[in-house]
């Protein structure tokens, strides 16, 4: 395979990833690596695609190969940094991102990745200067404005967040992240219709995109108490990680069985029945929650229409 063809396939995979077609990008890269298994950039890009598909272990493996093949490649260090950030290995991730920035100081994407890492590791004071440095480095990059907008949104400064979201949409009116950011600001300001319209607008570009779907779900969760409760429970469970998740569910089951046995031994049959019914209700609710949520989302997307004044 000649260099030109390799470059074309890499660009194609990158575009697929950018448009949210992660599976398509993975397939393209697998095709490329079947012929040319030693291209570091392909492994690094594959690692990022796998990370977007939540296949963290495989992503780590691919990023490792990329670094082995090209230890001086800024992109390989960036990929490794992003993946290790997701794996919560902040120290090594920071080292990798620092190396990527050192190798290519004019790449704002690397600065944004480091800003994300610093946010997650709680070093909040260093985030803003880094985001401002990213904008100064690449003033035409929409992601910089979106990142700054998200920074102010998280801190409750909706006015500044809106300024950056507007700027981002001014640069690229079709950028999904910018549209979603604007929708999220409207959601926080209580403008539900505007928030919904933005979520649908973003989804009209790619119905599989995670951020707008998340926004849409947050809107639905705010509109219904029961779905909202499930959404918060689900979000909480996703945040705490697998081990704690198992521990909480198993503890709930343990206390249910313990209560049931105890009440039966004390001949308090009514209390034992209440215990069983509560447990069953929890099971049904947590079982049905995602189904109802999914259906209401699909219904919303099928009846897709913008507000008259949008």
């Amino acid at each position: 395979m000649n260099d030109n063809r390799i470059e074309q396939l890499l660009i194609h995979a990158n575009q697929q990833l950018h448009h949210g077609d992660t599976y398509g990008a993975i397939d393209s890269l697998k095709q490329l690596l079947s012929y040319e298994p030693d291209i570091a950039d392909a492994h690094a890009l594959l690692a990022i695609c796998l990370f977007h598909s939540k296949r963290l272990e495989a992503a780590k493996y691919e990023a490792g190969i990329a670094l082995q093949l090209a230890p001086d490649s800024s992109f390989s260090h960036y990929a490794q940094g992003v993946i290790l950030t997701a794996a919560r290995q902040f120290t090594v991730a920071e080292d990798n991102l620092n190396q990527a920035i050192q190798l290519e100081p004019t790449n704002a994407t690397y600065l944004l990745a480091k800003a994300n890492l610093l946010t997650l590791s709680g070093k909040n004071k260093q985030v803003l200067p880094l985001l401002e440095q990213a904008i100064a480095t690449e003033p035409e990059l929409v992601d910089c404005y979106v990142a700054l907008g998200e920074y102010y949104l998280e801190r409750g400064d909706y006015k500044k967040a809106q300024t950056y979201a507007t700027e981002a949409m001014h640069l690229d009116s079709d950028d999904q992240d910018a549209i979603t950011l604007m929708g999220s600001i409207h959601l926080q300001l209580g403008n539900m219709d505007e928030a919904k319209d933005h979520a649908l607008w973003a989804l009209s570009h790619n119905a599989m995109a995670v951020k707008p779907l998340f926004l849409m779900s947050a809107i639905k969760a705010k509109q219904s108490i029961w779905l909202g409760l499930w959404w918060r429970f689900n979000s909480f469970m996703s945040k705490i990680g697998e081990a704690k998740q198992i521990l909480i569910l198993i503890s709930l089951y343990f206390f249910y069985r313990l209560g049931d046995q105890l009440f039966s031994d004390l001949e308090m049959s009514n209390a034992a029945t209440i215990c069983t019914i509560t447990w069953l209700a929890f099971c049904v609710y947590s079982w049905m929650g995602p189904v109802i949520f999914h259906r209401s989302l699909v219904k919303e997307l099928q009846s897709f229409s913008f507000d008259k004044h949008f």
């Binding site: 697998k30 690596l33 079947s34 796998l50 296949r55 495989a58 493996y61």
Partner: peptide, 9 residues
Amino acid sequence: MTYTIPDEP
């Protein structure tokens, strides 16, 4: 031969 990612079945 297709390239196989380690977590693929």
